[in-house]
Write a protein that binds this DNA or RNA. Structure first.
Lengths: 165, 165
DNA sequence: TAAAATTGTTAGACATGTCTAACAATTTTG
DNA sequence: CAAAATTGTTAGACATGTCTAACAATTTTA
């Protein structure tokens, strides 16, 4: 259980800033420091400081009191974070039946630490249960029964399983 | 997507230290600073420093050059971390088919950030697919087919799903 | 359009957790 | 059992990312 060092180039914080800028800028909207600060729950100086760092890395264009915009490279990183965010949110909300708010909060944390491999598999997993009606019928439904009653549904026995084979 | 503040009392780092001490101490084994440092991939002074902090919080008993032991309270926290770790590992390894090493690494990160609600549901989910042979037959198997071939298995169609209802 | 309000920046403090270098205690071993 | 090796600690530097306070620029509005 050796603690792993960064497998991603950006820290969780910097990823959050990039993600926020991308989301706020959707549809060419002008992005303000204030908005970012509110979206992320930090004070404005923290945003200014983050913008400076991200500018130095050429992920963001930003001049004093001026516009805030992702560079193509910054946008690429942001899109990737958003992709992870959405896949995770769908997993928690749809597969596990978690409420939207909690699903988002968890996605927001996990998106920064999950490995590329697990992320890919989790995304495929969500795709699968969304695409496969049989999977859907069997899984979320029986799983909900299990959650509610604390025991397996009747048709979920070894006998049935064997029959099917 | 406001960034949430600590929902847990311990930071990820401190949870890692508690977890490591609990694991190394399994079966009344003597726990050494060196071992902790190796297990977590940090240098010894970091361990000493962490032990001081955890001692102040009465989660660990530790005296200079002496024994290292969790207090009952520290053990409680550690057990909880280990529980999350194991449930997450099983999820990645068994439900998603991720290799053990990656499953553990991801568990190691996510265990510190996942919400209690999602953790509970995820654990139940793993229990469910481990307990329900039907779920097992339908999910991991068909999911693997989907992973391998990029498309749904034949028996995973709307027609079949409707029939079953 | 000038005063007021708002937004943004700078400077610097602070918390966390890491590290290296130097030293101290303990353990091993010749 | 004393020297050598190992393990552990202290002190202090450093990186990251946050904050408050003070000030500067921009925007609103009277």
């Amino acid at each position: 259980m050796v603690r792993q060092e960064a497998q991603r180039e950006q820290t969780a914080s910097m990823e959050d800033y990039l993600e926020a800028i991308a989301m706020l800028g959707e549809g060419k909207k002008v992005v303000k420091v204030k908005q970012i600060s509110e979206m992320l729950g930090v004070k404005m100086p923290s945003v200014t400081s983050a913008l400076r760092k991200l500018s130095e890395q050429e992920l963001v264009e930003h001049e004093r009191y001026g516009h805030i915009k992702l560079t193509p490279e910054g946008d690429k990183v942001a899109r990737d974070v958003i992709y992870r965010h959405e896949a995770l949110t769908r997993f928690f909300a749809q597969a596990l039946g978690i409420n939207q708010k909690t699903a988002e909060e968890d996605a927001c944390k996990i998106e920064h630490v999950i490995s590329p491999l697990s992320m890919e598999r989790l995304a495929k997993f969500v795709e699968f249960i969304e695409a496969c009606p049989l999977g859907r019928a069997n899984f979320p439904d029986r799983y909900e029964y299990y959650l509610k009653h604390g025991e397996l549904p009747q048709d979920c026995s070894n006998r049935d399983a064997k029959k099917r084979k």
